[in-house]
Every structure is written in structure tokens, then in C-alpha cells.
Simulated scan of single mutants.
Amino acid sequence: MTNNHRLCIQSAAIPAPRFHYSPCVQIGSLVQVSGMIALDPLTGQLVSGGVGAETACILANLQRALADYKVSLNDLLIARIFTTRFEAFAEINAAWEAVFSGDLNPPARTSVGVSALPLGASVEIEFTFVQS
């Protein structure tokens, strides 16, 4: 694959996008995952339970799609977290630390408070990977 060739990747392991966009795009060794909200993989509906539950669902969905995206958590360069509930960020951190603990080095991370997210979600996370 040349560096200027763009590959759009879908994963059957997670809910399909509800709008017209590519959930994952690869150019060369760079793999960009579009912002994910907490959609239940069985129903496609937004999960309930607050920001911690939403974050855990997003991270679980990401892990389900990693094989299709041909990356691993060790390839994760940066995650960008958007939340409408910044005052509850400790719950986001708890779900994050449940995944990025032990010998797994966490990626760089940016966190931004926003006024609204798609489908009434409280958390959205986008991910950038570099294949090793």
C-alpha cells in the first residue's frame, strides 16, 4: 500500500455507522478511527448508565474491532475524548484505567468538554493508531 492510497475499513464486530462516514480510514501505516459513541453491539442503541458505562462500552467496542482494523492497543498513538459531563471525568478515567493498566502503556490523550454529542451521548472518543 502506498502512502497516498486511502483504505476505508468496516468492522462487523461493532454497530454500523448511522450516518454517512467511514468508521476507520487507513493511509500507509496511519489508522484513524472515527469518533465512537457507546452503541450496544447487539441492539445498536446508546447504552445507559452514565459516562463510565459509556466509556467502558466505547473501549470494549474498539477492542472488538481491532482485528478488522489490523492494529492493537500497543499501536494506539492518541485518543481524543469528548464529553458533555466533564464534572464526571473520574468515571471516564476509571473505565480508561481498567483497559490501560499493567504492562500496557497508555497512549497520549486529549480530553475536551463539549455542549452536545451525537444521539445524546455523554462521551465520544476518536483514536489514532500507527501500525508497527
Rank of each mutant, 00 (worst) to 15 (best):
V33Q: 07
G113F: 09
S122P: 01
G44Y: 10
S29F: 05
F86C: 08
T110Y: 10
I92H: 00
I9P: 05
V25D: 01
A38R: 01
F89M: 12
N74M: 12
I78W: 07
A12K: 12
R85S: 13
A94G: 03
A67S: 15
I81H: 06
P41M: 05
T110A: 07
Q10D: 08
G113I: 04
V99P: 01
G28S: 09
A65F: 03
N93P: 02
R109W: 14
A116Q: 14
Y21D: 09
I125G: 03
V71T: 01
E91Q: 14
E124V: 04
V33A: 12
V51C: 14
C24H: 02
S101I: 11
F100G: 07
A121E: 05
E91D: 15
S115H: 11
L46M: 11
H20K: 14
A60K: 06
Y69C: 04
C57Q: 14
A90E: 10
E126K: 00
A95T: 02
S29T: 13
S48N: 13
I81C: 10
A121D: 05
V123I: 15
V114P: 06
S101P: 00
Q10P: 05
Q32T: 14
A53S: 15
I81K: 07
C24R: 02
I37L: 12
I78M: 09
N61K: 00
C57I: 02
D103P: 09
A88P: 00
V112F: 07
H20W: 10
V71K: 01
S22F: 12
V99G: 05
I92Y: 03
T84Q: 03
A38T: 03
T128D: 11
M36Y: 00
F89R: 08
L62E: 01
F129N: 06
V33E: 08
D75N: 15
A95E: 06
R80T: 11
I81T: 09
V71S: 02
T128M: 15
T55V: 07
A12S: 11
A56V: 03
A65T: 02
V130R: 10
I37C: 04
P41Y: 05
P106V: 10
S111K: 08
P107C: 12
G44N: 13
S111A: 08
L46N: 08
S132N: 08
L59I: 02
V33M: 07
L66P: 01
H20A: 14
L30T: 11
L73I: 08
L73Y: 05
F19E: 14
I81S: 05
T43E: 10
D75V: 09
A65R: 04
S111F: 11
P106A: 07
G35R: 09
F86E: 11
W96R: 04
I27Q: 13
S122V: 00
A108N: 09
L77Q: 02
G28K: 11
A65C: 07
C57L: 06
P107Q: 07
H5G: 04
G120M: 04
I9V: 15
F82W: 09
P15Q: 12
A67T: 11
S115P: 05
D40N: 15
F127A: 03
M1N: 12
A53W: 03
P106H: 09
S11D: 01
F89T: 05
A60W: 00
G113H: 11
A108V: 10
V123P: 06
V51P: 01
R109Y: 12
D68C: 01
Q32W: 13
C57N: 07
T43C: 09
T2W: 08
H5V: 14
E54W: 03
I58C: 02
V47Q: 01
G120T: 02
